[in-house]
Design a protein around this nucleic acid. Structure first.
Lengths: 190, 190
DNA sequence: CGATTCTTTGAAAACAGTCAATCTGTGTGG
DNA sequence: CCACACAGATTGACTGTTTTCAAAGAATCG
C-alpha cells in the first residue's frame, strides 16, 4: 500500500489505473529507525527519498567539525542531495532519520524507468522541484534579510508545531544560529 | 534565430526538426537596456526568462529599505521568481537588467502550450530545475558554514571573471555582506 | 539508575555592521 | 570637449549582535 505517494502524485497529474499499478510495483516502503542513515558523506547519492511518515534531516559535516543542517524532510516531502544526484559525484551530505520513519526510496534507475513508462511523471517532478526551488529562493531572502532572532521568531510563528517536534540544536543549525543563542531566544519569549 | 536556446535545450534532450520549428515560432529575443525591469515587486510574475546575452539580477526590497540580491542570471541561464510563478501570487522580487541584455521571455501560457506540444520539454525543465535546486542547497551550506570573508574568497576563486563583471555593492549583497566590508576584504588581498 | 545527550546560563571576545566623510570614476549635457 | 553631477568605492571610528568557551543543569534512553 503506497497510498501516500499515489495520492501525492495525483495532486499534480492524473494517473490511470495502469500507471498506479506500475508505480506500486516499482516502489516499496522502507522502515527506518531514528539515527539510521539513508546515505553518508562520501557515498554516491542515487535515489530520491519520499517521506511517508516521520522526519529526516539532510546535513553536512563542515571543515570546522560542526554539523550544518541543510534541510528537513517531513511527511509527504521529497528529499535528496540533488547535487550528487545530478553530477554523479559523491555526496558531501548525510541523510539521516531523526524519528522512526517510513520512506520510499526511489532509486535513480527505477525513477528513470518510471519516467519512461509514465512520461507525465516528468511533469510531476518538474512542478515539485520548481516549488522547492521557489522556497529555496525565499529561504535565501530570509537568511540575508533577517537577523538570527528574527529568523527564529518568523519560523516559530509559521511552524510552531514543528519547532516542538525537532531537537533545538538541529533547529538552531537549520536557522544558522548557535544552540546557545537559540536557547536565549526561547527564554526571551515568556 | 534563437540558436542559443535551441542549443541549450539540446544539451539535455533531443529535438526533432519540427520541435525546433515550434520552439522558434513561439519564442523571440527581447533586447533589454541596463536598469530596465522585466517585472517589479507587486506584479504577477508570469514568465520564465532565458538570458541569451547579458546579465539580470533578481532582488527584493526588504523592510529595512535595503535591496537584497537573490540571484544573478547570466548567459544561458533561466531566471524567474518561482514562488510567484507557482503560487499565482504577486512577486516580492524585482527582475532587472544590470547590463544591456538579450532575453527570451517565455510566458507561462506559451510555456504550457510548448510543454503540451513537446512533452520532452517537461524533462528539460525538470533536469534544469533539479540542478538549480542542487546549487541552492549548496548555497545554503556555504552561507552557514563560511564567514563573510570566506564566502567572498571562495566566490572570488571560483568566479574571478564574474567578480569583475558586476558592481561590488551587488556582489556584497549577493554574498550577504555590507559593501564596506567587501571593500575591506578586497584591500586585504594584495 | 547510570550514562550520554541536550539545554541552559554566564562572561569574554570577535566579526561584521552602521554611520559619516572623502575619494574616484564615469557618463551626460551644455 | 570640458565640467559638473552622481553613482559607486574606500577609509576610519564606533557599536552591537552573536559566537565561543566553559561549566552546570535537565532530560532521555537503554
Amino acid at each position: 500500500m503506497h497510498a501516500a505517494i499515489i495520492t501525492h502524485i495525483q495532486k499534480f497529474i492524473s494517473l490511470s489505473a495502469e500507471d498506479i499499478a506500475i508505480i506500486e510495483a516499482a516502489t516499496e516502503i522502507t522502515t527506518i529507525k531514528k539515527k539510521e542513515f539513508l546515505f553518508n558523506a562520501g557515498q554516491l547519492c542515487h535515489a530520491n527519498y519520499f517521506v511517508v511518515r516521520g522526519c529526516l534531516r539532510l546535513y553536512i559535516d563542515n571543515d570546522k567539525g560542526a554539523e550544518q543542517m541543510i534541510q528537513f524532510g517531513i511527511d509527504n516531502w521529497w528529499i535528496t542531495d540533488y547535487m550528487s544526484l545530478n553530477s554523479g559525484r559523491p555526496s558531501e551530505f548525510c541523510l539521516q532519520a531523526i524519528e522512526d520513519s517510513e520512506v520510499i526510496i526511489l532509486d535513480t534507475k527505477t525513477r528513470d524507468k518510471l519516467l519512461l513508462q509514465i512520461p507525465a511523471l516528468e511533469r510531476y517532478f518538474r512542478i515539485l522541484t520548481e516549488m522547492a526551488y521557489g522556497a529555496a529562493q525565499m529561504r535565501v531572502h530570509y537568511i540575508f534579510s533577517m537577523s538570527g532572532r528574527e529568523r527564529y521568531k518568523h519560523f516559530n510563528e509559521r511552524f510552531p508545531q514543528f519547532v516542538q517536534r525537532v531537537p533545538q540544536y538541529l533547529l538552531a543549525s537549520y536557522l544558522g544560529i548557535s544552540p546557545e543563542f537559540l536557547s536565549r531566544l526561547r527564554a526571551e519569549k515568556e
